[in-house]
Design a protein around this nucleic acid. Structure first.
Length: 555
RNA sequence: GCGCCUGUAGCUCAGUUGGAUAGAGCGCCGGACUUCGAAUCCGUAGGCCGCAGGUUCGAGCCCUGCCAGGCGCGCCA
């Protein structure tokens, strides 16, 4: 990266200036290079002169001038520099530098934007983890999209990523599902029993009951409920889990592992970890229950792990689960949760610390609510089921591409208004189509060129000096910026940076496309512009891949 | 009452971890297709960045206090 070279140049200048007695700083300041707010301010800017101002007791612009006077002879990739505003030093890079960057994009191809930033780091992303007690709804959809896109971004950034789904296949919820299905089963067999309070009312509960009748007939009707309920619970949760898997797969989301909560009880790890924490003094007994001393880690109150009747709470398995994750040796854990679970963050961080690990090994990405909007009004309830809108319904209506794009279009910590009509519309208003259209357009361009027997020139023969307009250089600069966007998305766990980048790139391209013609009688110019189009196509495809959104050749 | 998140143009949102004149899309108004895809582009207008203090060369961003909305505050998950 060019930034490294530039930093060295500035550091050398600072050192020389100090040796010459022009500057007196005691410690070399950190050189921060950034992209200027406006194009006219150059390609790279530094604020170093301003940060030095107070300790040098000189105006920033004077310091900037001293620094520049001590710079070594201008390297060829710098066209010029200037002092601007309160004391920025702006660097303008030469066109040939940018032309080389374009060749670099083509050379890297589908690897352009990838890095070894996370090299040697194993990172786990746990997401969705919906209870297998009902189908996925749109809230899970946003979680699934964000988690999956994060995993893709991290993978592209060199991390070794494992995607995991934690299955809550133990405890109250599952029992309640079993009872609900059993009740429907009895009802369908003409022997109605009271439906459990807080039971699951969805149609899918009937579906499962019918499935059991189809497979097993009515053999359970006369049996003792206590004897058959475990079967109902087990069967129902299996069916739901299969359905969840199918919905996710249709949403282009797959997992490397499916971790069973129940297994933590079966292999004794819950009991074992509670014993460990007890010996460390983090677990105590009170009022007949066992408590986790989470207040020691910033939680509001201590939390029960084993109830006075001896049944564990979900927190018990969460402790064992996170111990298990930690023991698997990940350098970083990411939990993607709904915002309604925000209150659990302190206690899970507490678990991490109590187990003797640094708390920042875990990052929790909280996803705020999704509001589905149709023509300006919120859609709360599905007409078909009378319940929450299902992910599968949404996908059926707007398609996977639009759903994934929209779900990752906002920062995770802000609410998302999902405009259904917009997501379906085939116009520039719809950002998905707007972006995909660029890809299709470029593909169309190459089809047209082929028709005219014009081939994309090789990097050796292309004359990129023909790309000298401001728009062409801007386009290349935008491509050049892509790897940085990927790394920042990975670093801050912010997928929306990719969607915004795509929209911006698409806008610059469309604008260019309307102003200039790619194919003309000037064959060297045509070759150069086709090379530019190829670069845009590559970056577009790579970025869309990160979102799990298709890059269509025709639309 | 306490905790977390949010508050930026009429609407939906960005804002490069504290930098230059706060940006984009939609909507409004006005323009551009006999030429590579008009599913596109160009232009105009629109702002006490919730309010009030503070920190410093500099604050939409950091600190404090208010106001408003969302979510959470169980021996439920």
């Amino acid at each position: 990266m060019i930034e490294g070279n530039l930093k060295e140049l500035i550091v050398e200048a600072l050192v020389r200036a100090k040796e010459a007695g022009k500057l007196k700083y005691s410690q070399l300041p950190e050189i921060i290079l950034e992209r200027p707010a406006e194009k006219s301010y150059g390609d790279i800017t530094t604020t170093v002169a301003m940060t030095l101002a107070s300790q040098e007791r000189k105006p920033p612009r004077v310091i900037a001038d001293i620094i520049l006077k001590h710079m070594s002879p201008t390297p060829s990739w710098i066209e010029r520099w200037e002092i601007a505003g309160p004391g920025f030093i702006n660097f303008y890079l030469s066109p040939s530098f940018w032309h080389n960057q374009l060749l670099f994009v083509l050379n890297r191809g589908d690897r352009f934007g990838s890095s070894d930033y996370g090299k040697g780091m194993r990172i786990q992303v746990e997401f969705v983890s919906a209870n297998p007690t009902g189908p996925l709804h749109v809230g899970h959809g946003r979680n699934a999209a964000v988690g999956d896109v994060l995993a893709r971004i991290l993978t592209f950034s060199g991390y070794q990523v494992e995607k995991e789904f934690y299955i809550n296949d133990f405890g109250n919820q599952i029992e309640l599902l079993g009872q609900s299905v059993w009740s429907r089963y009895m009802e369908l067999n003409g022997k109605p029993v009271p439906f459990p309070e807080n039971g699951y009312h969805g149609d899918y509960v009937y579906d499962i009951a019918r499935e059991i009748i189809a497979r097993k007939g009515s053999e359970f009707v006369e049996k003792d409920p206590a004897e058959v309920l475990p079967f109902f619970a087990e069967f129902a949760s299996q069916v739901m889990l299969e359905r969840i898997k199918a919905d996710l797969e249709a949403f282009r989301v797959t997992f490397d592992s499916w971790f069973s909560e129940k297994s933590l009880y079966q292999n004794g790890s819950v009991a074992q970890v509670l014993e460990t924490l007890k010996s460390k003094g983090f677990i105590y007994e009170q009022e007949g229950a066992l408590w986790f001393r989470s207040t020691q880690f910033g939680d509001d109150k201590d939390r029960v792990v084993i109830r006075s009747d001896g049944r564990p709470t979900y927190l018990a398995s969460d402790i064992a689960y996170h111990q298990n994750k930690l023991q698997r040796g990940f350098s970083k854990l990411i939990n993607v949760w709904g915002a309604d679970h925000g209150g659990y963050v302190p206690r899970v961080k507490g678990i991490i610390k109590a187990l003797g690990y640094p708390e920042d090994i875990l990052s929790v990405v909280l996803i705020q609510l999704v509001r589905l909007m149709r023509e300006g009004v919120e859609v709360k309830i599905s007409k078909r089921s009378g319940k929450l809108i299902l992910l599968s319904d949404l996908v059926e209506e707007v398609g996977v591409d639009a759903a994934r794009f929209f779900f990752t279009m906002r920062r995770t910590d802000s609410h998302l208004d999902f405009d259904l009509e917009l997501a379906k519309s085939q116009s520039k208003d719809n950002p998905v189509y707007y972006v995909q259209y660029v890809h299709a357009r470029i593909c169309s361009l190459f089809r047209e060129a082929k028709k005219l027997s014009i081939a994309l020139p090789s990097p050796q023969e292309v004359d990129l000096n023909r790309l000298n307009s401001e728009e062409e250089l801007s386009l290349i600069k935008e491509l050049y910026h892509f790897p940085k966007v990927v790394i920042e998305s990975a670093l801050f766990l912010e997928p929306h940076r990719i969607t915004f980048y795509l929209q911006n790139l698409a806008s610059i391209f469309h604008s260019y496309y309307n102003k200039y013609r790619f194919i003309s009688e000037d064959l060297t110019l045509t070759g150069a512009r086709l090379t530019l189009a190829k670069g845009v196509q590559i970056v577009l495809k790579n970025a869309l891949d990160l979102l799990g959104v298709s890059a269509p050749e025709v639309m």
